[in-house]
């Protein structure tokens, strides 16, 4: 019984991380129909920014999250307006996939040049603490990461649900022609969406940096994970990403415990295939606008 409880707690904690890491990907996919293959590298840029702030200024990685988000919001906005929009305008949405893939490769090598390929780790003074509730052991870092993820996802849900910017983003996602006819500057909205996505990817990077050692080649892993989470949970909504991430975390730890630790990835992709066949829009999502 203890093992089952421990597995559930571990799964939820891991799932929280997956959710936050995927939400940016989900937004861009949902609003702009762009499969952002540079998502993982933006997550890692967040990790490295947080690492720099921690090493040079001694800023706690959780406190560095707002700074990382601001920096990456700017990066995301400029990246979308300066590069992705151009690719979409001149060619097709497929071009944007190629562009983001190319950017990911370039940025990965830039990170190698700046930080070397050696793995890095963010270890604040509380990084190794844990507490015990009855028979369950809870890692303080992972539970903090889960809490930060939930707070950020709620924040995003509030922004999308109750602010002018959120309404405009949702309107553009639902029907961009109608939004344009109502006077929405869709290009600006795309830029904002990309900025928000990059900011949240960066925030997840800062949190992941405390939990895992990281190095530039890890970016592909986070892009693939985001894709699976979004497919599971549904495109374009924080709740979809949350459900998808938590489910993925639970599936991962439960598979590891019940079948064997070698099989979580196999199970993850099996579920992905089943979801694509049975419910391509995901559990909570709408079909992404390109498929409507």
């Amino acid at each position: 019984m203890t093992l089952i409880l421990q597995t559930i707690v571990d799964g939820l904690v891991l799932g929280g991380l997956y959710s936050l890491a995927a939400i940016g990907f989900s937004l861009i996919f949902g609003v702009m129909n762009v499969v952002n293959l540079s998502h993982g590298i933006i997550v890692l840029i967040g990790s490295y920014l947080s690492y720099i702030l921690w090493r040079t200024l001694g800023i706690d990685p959780l406190l560095s999250i707002p700074l990382v988000m601001v920096a990456l919001f700017g990066f995301g906005y400029v990246y979308q307006r300066g590069l992705i929009q151009l690719a979409v305008d001149r060619s097709s949405l497929l071009a944007s996939m190629l562009v983001t893939f190319g950017v990911a490769l370039m940025l990965r090598n830039v990170l190698v040049l700046i930080f070397s390929p050696d793995f890095k780790s963010i270890t604040p003074s509380w990084a190794f603490n844990f507490f015990v509730i009855g028979p369950i052991t809870v890692d303080l870092v992972r539970i903090s990461a889960l809490a930060a993820s939930l707070v950020l996802l709620c924040l995003l849900a509030l922004v999308l649900g109750y602010t002018h910017m959120g309404r405009v983003i949702r309107a553009t996602a639902q029907q961009d022609l109608a939004a344009r006819l109502c006077g929405v500057n869709a290009r600006h909205v795309y830029g904002l969406t990309f900025g928000v996505s990059a900011a949240f990817a960066g925030a997840s990077g800062a949190i992941l940096g405390i939990v895992l050692p990281f190095s530039p080649p890890d970016e592909a892993h986070w892009t693939i994970n985001a894709f699976v989470v979004v497919t599971l949970g549904g495109v374009g909504s924080p709740s979809g990403a949350l459900i998808g991430g938590l489910l993925l975390g639970l599936i991962s730890t439960a598979t590891s415990q019940a079948i064997g630790p070698a099989f979580p990835n196999a199970m993850m992709f099996l579920i992905l295939v089943i979801m694509l066949l049975v419910r391509p829009a995901g559990l909570l999502g709408n079909a992404f606008s390109g498929s409507r």
Binding site: Q6, T7, T253, S256, G260, P261, A262
Partner: peptide
């Protein structure tokens, strides 16, 4: 004995065991 995937992100279930 525990056999994990080549790239691991979490070993909490292994450590519980």
């Amino acid at each position: 004995s525990y056999q994990l995937p080549e790239q691991i992100t979490d070993v909490s279930s292994v450590l519980a065991s």
